[in-house]
Structures are given as structure tokens and as C-alpha cells.
Amino acid sequence: MRAGEETYGMYDRTTGEAGTDTEQGGRGVQGVRGGPDTPFGAPDVLVSAEGLPRWLDPVVRFAQAARPRQLNAFLPPSDGGGRQAAVLILFGEGRAGPELLLMERAGSLRSHAGQPAFPGGALDPGDGDPATTGPLRAALREAQEETGLDPAGVQLFGTLPRLYIPVSGFVVAPVLGWWREPTPVGAVDPAETARVFTVPVADLTDPANRGTAVHPRGHLGPAFTVEGALVWGFTAGVIDRLLHFAGWERPWDQDRRLPLDWHA
């Protein structure tokens, strides 16, 4: 699932308000929130904030209190429709400090070629209930299939409100994880994925690496120039909101324009 990566106008940078807990999209995946240690009916699915590094505290607090419109101007369909999907937002700690795991789509693909993204994809029937544990399993499964990471080394610690992408009809559950025991990663299928890489959070917050992406259709959205890649669209929007609400954002020039052919 990469459809919707070129969607803009999803994120409200001004109010951080909106909505009630009864809005469709809810606070994360329905039925998944709980206390700091919450089992979800199966031994292989656990969401726990116990033992996380202290620098993740702001992310945990935001995940516990986030409202849908703080991330997305569009709410999932009230009838429960939409194509259910999940992405894994995996935080680790590398030589340069806190970092995020991303992947870059193969340049030969017809859709979103060369575009960086979080690991993730559509839910399979075997993932379970889309309203509870399905997104958790899907996020881990897709990350393993795409990057080769070992899910056993990932500690899930929360979810963000589901994001609706009208252009593709996807209802995406962002699943938050801590890479407690890192394992080697790389492109499992080169025909689909060009590379798998990590980005230091310090690089994402560096104003020199930030700008506003300009789509050929005229749409605008946050963007990051990191690790030789332009991160834009859905992925950049989620990162932008995480940095903002975690209190990690630094002032940056929103008038700096970055066309999608920024290397040209």
C-alpha cells in the first residue's frame, strides 16, 4: 500500500484541535487503547510503554491524547467503509541518536516510483479484526515482508488516530513501535523496494532539511530532504505532525519550495 502518498492538505498545523472522541477515526485503532501494558487477546500482540527510553515520552503522551483532526482533515467514512491498512512508525536509536525506519520504493514502479515511505500495507484476512488487533499484526507483517526486520525485536507502544486518504480510499492506522532489539534490514524484493534506511530525528528537525513540496498539480505539503531522498506526501505529513506535537519541531522556512524533481 502506497496509494495516497501524493495527498496534501491533510494536516492542520494551526489549531491542533478538533473533534471529539466519538468522531470516526477515534483515538487510534478502536479497542486497542488501554493502560501502559495492554494485551489484546493473543500472546503475539502486546502494546506496552514500559521500558521505553525517556526521549519517547512526548510521543507516548501524544499517542494517548491525539485527536483525529490533529493529523488529518479527513475522517474515515462514518459507515466503516474504506480499505483498511496500517503502517509501522518504528523508532530506533543509532549512532546519531533517535531515528526512524523508512523505505524507498523501486524507481521502476508505475506508481510512486522512488518515493520514501513507512513500511506498511493493506490488512490481510489473517491479520484479524481491523477494529482491534488487525492493524498491529498488519504493520509488523508488512514491515517484515518489506524490510526483513524481526518483529520479535519490536515493542509496539501505541497507535495514532486512523488517517483517511480520499484519493485511494485507504483508512490507515499508524502503529508506533520501539526497535528494542534491532536486526539487519534491507530490500527484500528489489523489484518493489530500492532500499531500506534509517533517518536520525535530528536530521528531520534540522531546518536546513525542511521545506514545502510542490506537486505538479499544485498541491503543497511538508517535505524533508534526508539521506539523499525527498520525503513528501503522506509519510512527510505524519512525520511533520509527530515532530510538532512531540515538541521536537524547530522553526523552519515554510516558504522554501521543493519540487518533486528536486534533484533535477
Results as ranks from 00 to 15, higher is better:
A152E: 14
A152P: 07
G153T: 05
G153L: 08
G153N: 01
G153K: 05
G153A: 04
V154N: 08
V154R: 00
V154T: 00
V154Q: 02
Q155K: 02
Q155M: 03
Q155V: 01
L156D: 10
L156Q: 03
F157Y: 00
G158W: 04
G158K: 02
G158T: 04
T159R: 04
T159F: 04
T159G: 07
T159H: 04
T159E: 08
T159W: 03
L160I: 02
L160D: 04
P161K: 01
R162H: 03
R162C: 11
R162Y: 02
R162S: 12
R162K: 14
L163R: 13
L163E: 14
L163G: 05
L163F: 11
I165E: 08
I165V: 13
I165F: 13
I165N: 06
P166Q: 12
P166E: 12
V167L: 14
S168L: 14
G169H: 04
G169T: 11
G169V: 10
G169R: 09
G169S: 07
F170R: 13
F170H: 14
V172L: 14
V172W: 11
A173V: 02
A173M: 06
P174D: 06
P174H: 01
V175R: 03
V175I: 12
V175F: 04
L176T: 08
L176N: 11
G177I: 03
G177C: 08
G177T: 00
W178P: 05
W178L: 09
W178R: 00
W178Y: 12
W179I: 08
W179Y: 13
R180S: 13
R180F: 03
E181R: 11
E181W: 02
P182M: 09
P182E: 07
T183N: 02
T183I: 07
T183P: 05
P184C: 09
P184N: 13
P184R: 03
P184A: 13
V185P: 00
G186S: 08
G186W: 01
A187G: 00
A187N: 08
V188E: 01
V188Y: 06
V188C: 06
D189R: 08
D189H: 03
A191Q: 15
A191H: 15
A191C: 15
A191D: 15
E192L: 15
E192D: 15
E192F: 15
E192K: 15
T193N: 03
T193R: 00
A194C: 04
R195W: 11
V196G: 03
V196Q: 01
V196E: 05
F197T: 01
F197Y: 11
T198K: 04
T198V: 13
T198E: 09
T198A: 14
V199P: 05
V199K: 04
V199D: 09
P200F: 11
P200D: 14
V201Y: 00
V201C: 11
V201F: 09
V201G: 01
A202S: 14
A202C: 05
A202I: 09
A202M: 10
A202W: 02
D203M: 10
D203Q: 12
D203A: 15
D203T: 11
L204T: 08
L204V: 06
L204C: 02
